[in-house]
Simulated assay, not measured.
Amino acid sequence: MSTAAAKRIVVFGGNGFLGSRICKAAASRSWDVTSVSRSGPPKWSSVTSSASPPPWSHKVTWERADIFQPSQWLALLQSADYVVHSLGILLEADYKKIVSGQASPFSLFSSSSSSSAPKSSANPLDRKPGDQSPLNKENRQQLTYETMNRDSAILLAKESAAKGVKAFGYVSAAAGAPVLPSRYITTKREAEDVIEREFGREMRGVYFRAPFMYDSSRKFTVPIAAGAMVANTFNGLTGGLLGGFLGAAGIKPLKADLVAEAVVEALADDKVRGVVGVEDLERLGEKGRRGEVV
């Protein structure tokens, strides 16, 4: 009796808070899992409660590459069933500062809130292999919401479609100002729109509009999530009275492991495409945890 070939997934940003959990969820299904990031394996103390690599981490191939230099990672997309973009400069950069004690947890919601920061002028669809990367040290001033949230995702989707990838997962966000900077949300939405318009016929796009995510391994996320839960309950009892004002703070937070399970479950289900909101993330995550057959 023949055994079905394992699914192959490549997670860009796979060493981050959510990305590492996506890798874990995929590895638990015996998928072939590759993580791509600039630093390779995670600094485990920043994404789990231990400084030591967990057992599942040995089932993941940890690659180093610059997202804006396709020549460094194009070969990794060969025969991939799924590709996930889990990169960003709000959650990852600010979490690292908070974990290291360089910033307050409240800076997660207040930093980079300007709506008039410089925009990226280059069209990511026209990017050439030799173009300078915004991640180069001498070019860091170009590292904006536009480059990381939008342009890197469009570039990755373009190359994924060209390689025949079946499904592309994009980690987006649930809501915006005042809790999240408006440009953080608009660049996420722009990426969703362009990817679906340009590549939706060739490749199934799934856009995960995640709420605030928490885990006990990052202790500062727990009280923030508790506050968001209270706001969500109040918002529900008042018929969404303050929904527009609260933004992401009025949306039910989810545990990061649950969102990761939802990402993997959605990619595995050919019927799931387009925007996946918070309620569907919760449903898919629970389904993935139960190990239901897709």
Rank of each mutant, 00 (worst) to 15 (best):
A80L: 04
V47G: 03
H58C: 03
E63F: 01
W44K: 05
L108G: 12
V99Q: 04
H58P: 00
E63R: 03
A117E: 11
L74E: 10
V99Y: 08
A75G: 12
P105E: 15
P53H: 07
V84N: 00
A80Y: 06
L76R: 03
V47N: 02
S114W: 01
V84P: 00
K119V: 04
P105F: 10
Y95D: 09
E63M: 04
A65F: 03
S50V: 13
I67D: 00
F106Y: 12
A103F: 06
P42S: 08
K97C: 03
A65S: 09
I89H: 02
L91R: 11
S86G: 14
A51W: 08
H85Y: 06
P118F: 00
P70F: 01
L74G: 07
S116T: 07
A51V: 05
A103Q: 09
S113K: 00
S107R: 15
W73L: 08
P55Y: 04
S111Q: 13
E63A: 04
S112M: 07
S114N: 03
Y95Q: 13
G88R: 03
T61M: 01
V84H: 00
V60M: 13
F109Q: 06
D94I: 15
S86V: 14
T61L: 03
S112Q: 00
K43F: 09
K119P: 02
A93E: 04
V60G: 08
I89S: 07
S79K: 15
L87T: 10
S86Q: 10
W73D: 06
F106A: 13
S79R: 14
K59Y: 05
S120P: 11
I89V: 12
L77H: 09
L87V: 13
S52M: 08
A93G: 03
A117Q: 14
Y95H: 13
L91A: 13
Y82E: 12
W73H: 05
S111D: 12
S113H: 04
W62H: 04
A93S: 04
A75R: 12
S110P: 02
K97S: 06
S112P: 00
G88N: 07
S116P: 02
K96L: 11
P53L: 08
L74A: 09
S52R: 10
S104F: 05
V47I: 11
V99I: 04
S50W: 13
K96I: 10
V60L: 14
S52I: 05
K119N: 05
S79T: 15
A93K: 03
K96P: 06
G101C: 06
W62D: 01
P55Q: 09
Q69T: 06
F109S: 11
L77T: 09
K43N: 10
S116K: 12
K59I: 06
A93H: 01
S50C: 14
S116W: 08
P118Q: 01
P54F: 00
H58W: 02
S116A: 09
S45N: 08
S71H: 05
G101F: 10
L91E: 11
S113G: 02
Q102D: 11
L90T: 13
F109I: 14
S71W: 00
K97E: 08
G101A: 07
S49W: 01
L91C: 07
W44H: 06
A117N: 13
L87R: 03
P55C: 01
